[in-house]
Design a protein around this nucleic acid. Structure first.
Length: 290
DNA sequence: CGACACTCCTGATGGC
DNA sequence: TGCCATCAGGAGTGTC
């Protein structure tokens, strides 16, 4: 599933092919893609405009067209954005053409969770992102101190904290697991219980995990493909994610799978010690030991 | 405000 | 081997 490194990989590949060109066709085949707006609304607002820049914010791909018209794409679980794909490519939801067909793009998405949203004016775009997204983790904003401020007083598991896009933008299930392992922090630790040193370590670990993913061209588990249709390589470098039953690369213990924040979560509980249970109100003696 | 369940969707997976 | 139920999950919404 595309997270920040996967989206950034696509952005870097596509930018030289789309920037400076005119979006001549925006053909939205699946109206669900742009709900609640109709496909015609996006087409009328965007067709014929020049692409000034292809940007990214969190997991969003942000098409910046002339006169401050923005198309904000999200790939969600299974979306891909393919450059000049083979004609038989399935699950096409949107077709885009640049410079009258000089370049063709297809937004393909078997599960149909992907979205495209329209923002007219820089203020509308900023409002859209400000409502949904927090710090950009690769921009230098994500310091240990910033993380500590956001986590203070929060009792939710730190994994849920990392997945909350309104605090840190772009971290998904894969990179949350990898960052927590690198920082030696158990995913069920209450976010607000982390020490200052652990906040520093976690901020650095998020940066490292995302950077490693980006350097490998992203991770492909099921569906992710870059703009050329090529799989990423980072799945081969996962330290714990999707490695249930395998030896921990650090201590040789066994990686286990559990559920945290409602997500499949992989952890080495020797390197990432389980948080102590909160004090129970019931008499201790009434409970059987785990 | 925060935490959690539910929802969308469909290919992959697993149990029998 | 084949079928069917269940799972997976990003983010929006609803509920307490």
């Amino acid at each position: 599933m595309p997270e920040l490194p996967e989206v950034e990989t696509i952005r870097r590949q596509l930018a030289p092919h789309v920037e400076g060109r005119e979006l001549t066709v925006l053909d939205i085949l699946d109206p669900r893609w742009c709900l609640p707006l109709a496909p015609e609304a996006l087409r009328d607002a965007l067709e014929g405009r020049r692409v000034e820049r292809l940007g990214r914010r969190g997991k969003y791909l942000a098409w910046e067209l002339e006169d401050e018209a923005y198309l904000l794409m999200h790939l969600r679980m299974t979306g891909t954005l393919l450059l000049d794909p083979p004609p038989a490519t399935p699950y096409v939801r949107v077709r885009l053409a640049l410079d009258g067909g000089e370049r063709e793009l297809r937004f393909c998405d078997p599960r149909r969770f992907g979205t495209g949203e329209l923002a007219l004016g820089a203020a509308a775009r900023d409002a859209f992102f400000d409502l949904r997204l927090g710090l950009e983790p690769l921009s230098g904003e994500l310091t240990g101190e910033a993380l500590r401020r956001m986590a203070r007083g929060r009792r939710a598991p730190v994994k849920a904290f990392l997945l909350d896009q309104r605090r840190i933008a772009g971290v998904g299930n894969i990179y949350a697991d990898e960052a927590l392992f690198r920082a030696r922090i158990h995913p069920l630790r209450p976010a607000g219980s982390l020490s200052r040193a652990q906040c520093d370590a976690l901020a650095a670990a998020v940066h490292e995990a995302l950077s490693a993913g980006l350097a490998a061209g992203g991770a492909t588990i099921d569906d992710f493909r870059d703009a050329e249709g090529v799989s990423g390589a980072f799945q081969d470098e996962f330290l714990v994610h999707r490695r249930r039953g395998e030896p921990c690369p650090e201590c040789g213990g066994t990686v286990v799978k559990m559920v945290a924040a409602g997500r499949g979560t992989y952890v080495c509980e020797r390197c990432q010690p389980r948080p102590r249970r909160r004090r129970a109100r019931a008499p201790v003696g009434l409970r059987a030991a785990g």
